[in-house]
Amino acid sequence: MTQPLDVLVFYSPVESTEDVLAAVFAAGAGAVGDYRDCAFVTRGRGRFRPTAGANPTIGSVGELALVAEDRVELVLDRHLRADVVAALRAAHPYEEPAFHVVETADPDAR
């Protein structure tokens, strides 16, 4: 029986993507069968406006920031979720990284 999987999607400034990937891979994410360090990365533009109380890594409070970012998607065994999310948060340069975790359906369920 295979482990239930999650899909992690996160957004990273382009220059930080490889460092964040290294951290989540070290925590066990990105394994597909006999392959490791698997991810799908697409380039886009992120936008955000830090509000009062924020300590932005990029941009200034009250001003709209437009940033070249990567959208990264990878799988992980569900039991690794807490460790992988902790690794993402520790390695990511943003004060509040944008990410989501999706539980996958069992492909063998009848």
Rank of each mutant, 00 (worst) to 15 (best):
108 D>P: 00
106 D>R: 07
79 H>D: 11
56 P>Q: 09
31 A>Y: 02
100 H>V: 04
83 D>G: 14
110 R>P: 10
44 G>D: 13
28 G>N: 08
21 L>W: 00
88 L>R: 07
35 Y>Q: 13
108 D>K: 04
39 A>G: 07
35 Y>L: 14
106 D>L: 03
45 R>N: 13
98 A>I: 08
46 G>C: 13
36 R>C: 06
31 A>M: 09
30 G>V: 00
4 P>N: 12
68 A>W: 02
36 R>T: 13
40 F>E: 02
57 T>F: 11
57 T>M: 10
13 P>R: 09
29 A>E: 02
72 V>E: 00
110 R>A: 13
51 T>C: 12
46 G>E: 10
48 F>Y: 15
84 V>D: 04
88 L>Y: 07
86 A>G: 11
77 D>P: 04
24 V>N: 03
61 V>L: 10
1 M>T: 15
80 L>K: 12
71 R>W: 02
57 T>R: 15
4 P>G: 12
69 E>L: 04
97 P>W: 01
9 V>F: 13
8 L>E: 06
81 R>A: 06
109 A>N: 07
28 G>P: 09
105 A>Q: 11
64 L>M: 13
72 V>S: 01
13 P>Y: 05
41 V>N: 03
16 S>D: 15
49 R>Q: 15
65 A>L: 08
41 V>F: 01
54 A>Q: 14
56 P>M: 08
46 G>Y: 04
27 A>M: 09
18 E>M: 07
91 A>V: 03
104 T>Y: 06
11 Y>G: 02
54 A>G: 12
36 R>D: 13
48 F>D: 11
36 R>M: 02
45 R>P: 01
9 V>D: 10
20 V>C: 13
60 S>Q: 14
107 P>Q: 03
5 L>M: 14
17 T>E: 00
34 D>N: 14
88 L>H: 07
8 L>D: 06
82 A>I: 02
46 G>I: 05
10 F>V: 02
63 E>A: 15
5 L>K: 15
98 A>G: 11
82 A>V: 08
31 A>V: 12
41 V>K: 07
51 T>W: 09
97 P>M: 01
69 E>N: 06
10 F>S: 04
21 L>Y: 00
93 P>D: 05
89 R>I: 04
44 G>A: 12
77 D>S: 06
108 D>R: 11
47 R>N: 10
82 A>H: 12
98 A>Q: 13
107 P>M: 01
86 A>L: 04
64 L>W: 10
79 H>R: 07
106 D>V: 02
25 F>M: 04
28 G>E: 05
103 E>R: 08
94 Y>L: 15
102 V>N: 09
104 T>Q: 10
102 V>T: 13
47 R>K: 12
60 S>L: 11
61 V>K: 11
42 T>G: 15
100 H>N: 08
32 V>N: 11
104 T>C: 10
29 A>I: 00
64 L>T: 12
63 E>S: 15
109 A>H: 08
16 S>V: 00
101 V>A: 06
35 Y>P: 07
85 V>M: 03
98 A>W: 07
82 A>D: 15
100 H>I: 02
